[in-house]
Write a protein that binds this DNA or RNA. Structure first.
Lengths: 206, 206
DNA sequence: CATCGCATAGTCCATTTCGACTATACGAAA
DNA sequence: TTTCGTATAGTCGAAATGGACTATGCGATG
């Protein structure tokens, strides 16, 4: 995995938009919102302007012109350089073919699940299941809407992927709840259901 | 979703360890490595010390004593406060029941897949499939090893979840490749396979 | 006709994060 | 005996991030 200087997804999105047409940062931001990019790439003002700054430093974009309208602040319109276009494509390819190490919160929390009693765990899982189900329904509706407008399937690849992964998570959550309930992971201690070998500390103490 | 002051997973892991026994930061780091925590929570030196600093500021931990050995730097041993223990449990519960908005790289890249030609996309997907398959095999082996040592299933919940999600991704990748190959998403243009409605820019230009 | 809210366009700065660096101790190899 | 690698324990500074803030224009609404 190459060590990239500019290495945040927002920069990738910026490049992809400038690829289409030169814009000033605010227009970039507006266009992103309109296209729903903030659903998959975190967007906020501060980061955007500082990202544009780094792209500039790396010479992946150049200011094309600056203009002003009324007494609004000056707007600088940027355009990608050849290096920027190439860098964008290579980066995008790499993101597709090579999985990146990431640290989602849920598995991290799962690794500490021993700190929560089995019965409460079941409750918490049920709540999560509810949220995920709702999310799936909403995303599916969004997909239907887009397809109804006649847009090509290529534009909803990411949504379909996300829904697919959510469904998979749902299945896992439900099967884990079943496993807790059937008692293979717990035992009775002083009239309470506890995990077998509850928390790592017990190993040290034995 | 509550706005937490200390809000990085490393802090959660620190609390979970101090929960077991007071330690100095270096011992925390070493214990984490030994337990494989860096697989699910990003660990690096700088972050660890600054995380401990914030936990201290929030009064979730307190220095218990400081000692020194030879001419090594002084070691400060920390212990969780009552607020720390409570905060830890509440935080952990919340992470289980409530899905957090996250921004994994792959869906972000997928949303820009229109910038890559269908044939190359197939190639890139095949590479990714290879990496994922390898990852699954390795993780499965790791799980077998842990179970062989007689550790309870509760300790590998996160690994099983991750493998489950990887398998799901694998299925999606393979089905997407099939969809590209069967031609429903592409069309012939000047003798080349291109996406139907290749890149958003074309819409504007029509 | 005043003002309320939203769109426009961006700045500022406190934290966080990350990686490189410092510096000692200590056993094994050359 | 020097030197090399590794473990111990942590510091430092550049860069990224996030959110609050500034300031104007402009249409709708009471």
């Amino acid at each position: 995995m190459i060590k990239r200087k500019v290495n945040n997804m927002l920069a990738l999105a910026v490049l992809s938009l400038l690829h289409e047409k030169p814009m000033h940062p605010y227009e970039i931001s507006a266009t992103m919102k309109q296209r729903g990019i903030p659903d998959v790439i975190k967007l906020n003002n501060g980061s955007l302007y500082s990202t544009v700054e780094s792209l500039l430093k790396q010479k992946w974009i150049v200011p094309l012109q600056t203009e002003r309208e009324g007494k609004h602040p000056e707007r600088t319109i940027y355009s990608p350089t050849d290096a920027g276009r190439e860098g964008f494509h290579e980066w995008l390819r790499e993101l597709i073919y090579s999985p990146v190490k990431e640290y989602p919160h849920f598995p991290a929390a799962l690794s500490l699940i021993g700190h929560i009693a089995p019965q409460e765990t079941i409750q918490l899982f049920h709540q999560r299941i509810g949220y995920i189900q709702k999310d799936i329904v909403e995303r599916r509706a969004g997909i239907e809407l887009v397809l109804a407008k006649g847009l090509a399937r290529i534009f909803i690849a990411e949504s379909q992927f996300i829904v697919h992964q959510l469904e998979s998570e749902l299945n896992w959550l439900q099967s884990f709840v079943r496993d807790i309930k059937d008692g293979s992971m717990t035992e009775l201690q002083d009239g309470e259901q506890v995990w077998k070998y509850s928390v790592p500390v017990f190993e040290d103490e034995l």
